[in-house]
Write a protein that binds this DNA or RNA. Structure first.
Lengths: 196, 196
DNA sequence: AAGAGTCCGGGACAGTTGACCTGATGCCTG
DNA sequence: CAGGCATCAGGTCAACTGTCCCGGACTCTT
């Protein structure tokens, strides 16, 4: 086994844990399966992390940061507002369709964090970060395009966050991705109508 | 311990399991904790259910049926469409605020079912039932009020289902119930605009 | 009242899991 | 080149969980 500093080893174990959890589910992922996925022995695990909880914490923060960048990548300003929103939804939706297990994992980890004493702040931070990312993007769009909103930015941001959350979860459960594009179109039109 | 027929004992154990799971979470609920919650010995559990999975199946179907009745109770026809939708949202939202653990449990069970081999159909059925309940209510409203929809009933039903799902999850994570009423108002107005 | 069918209690067992420990192996510094 | 430190491998342990067995008690029929 190649030697490496603990910081890098920690990253490797975190990535392995994400893969294992996305594949098997959070409940069925053990320290042994994570170590095996990373290709290291179990003792290495406890050398790099004080406990399994410490690793889960690293997994959640890593995944949260990663998800935000996905949202920010998706929402790039276009010529018109409707075009911007539509393109953003499309990019996000493509990501969901391409990585269903990863999105499923975030839902699982949210609930794990809410149940685990002392971890609830991680779940909240995850959702707050989403909302803030949306709010910043809306604010930026509003300035760039000189828009006037019929509703406060915070309301619109939370609406978008909850909307995408619900649509994603429904798709993950029911499948049938095509059926949801009509709904995204409806929502896109709705949002376009909320500005003047 | 009072003697009772297995059918009734099964119901009692199912109810106890729902309470225990809502309180401790699905992952931390064991056959022992369920038996203790029901006030019976562990052997009674396996006398009434072949396995823990058999009980979880009973829990999911029970809870799904229960949730549908909540939605149907909430959406009673009023004088105007907007009033009907607003009252429906308010009733549903009150139920969520009054029973956060119960709603959290449904999300947990959905993911449990999706991960457990042979249980995914239960998760799908849960979400299909929601969608169908919405679709029927919309159809009924459309007939009674002689409405004309700008979007197909199925699209509107799925939109509502995903919307409430996402809003509920966001509230369960972030709290701050008051902040979401503005969003519900926005959605209500949106839906009212989708008919003519 | 007697027997069969139904229900209940305590205990036990095998498998799994997170955590830990001791010793060995390489890498770097002085 | 030698000592010290970071890194790894395997084994062990205690706790927990789902499942099962066996004996006893209750109830209803005949």
């Amino acid at each position: 086994m190649a030697r490496m500093p603990s910081a890098e080893r920690r990253r490797q174990l975190t990535e392995a844990a994400i893969r294992a959890m996305a594949r098997d589910g959070v409940a069925k992922t053990t320290t042994r399966s994570i170590a095996a996925e990373a290709g290291v022995s179990l003792s290495v695990f406890h050398y790099c992390f004080d406990s399994k909880q410490a690793l889960v914490e690293a997994v959640i923060t890593t995944l949260t940061d990663h998800s935000v960048s996905v949202v920010q990548e998706a929402l790039r300003p276009k010529d018109t507002l409707e075009e911007t929103v539509a393109a953003g939804f499309r990019a996000y939706w493509d990501h969901v369709r391409a990585n269903p297990e990863a999105h499923m994992l975030t839902y699982e980890l949210t609930q794990y964090a809410l149940r685990e004493p002392g971890f609830d702040h991680l779940a909240r931070r995850q959702y707050e970060v989403y909302g803030e990312a949306y709010a910043e993007l809306i604010e930026q769009l509003r300035r760039d395009m000189d828009l006037e909103l019929r509703v406060p930015v915070s309301v619109l941001a939370r609406y978008l966050a909850a909307m995408t959350d619900g649509l994603t979860l429904n798709y993950l459960v029911l499948g049938d991705a095509a059926a949801w594009s009509d709904i995204l179109d409806t929502v896109t039109a709705h949002i376009a109508g909320l500005v003047r």
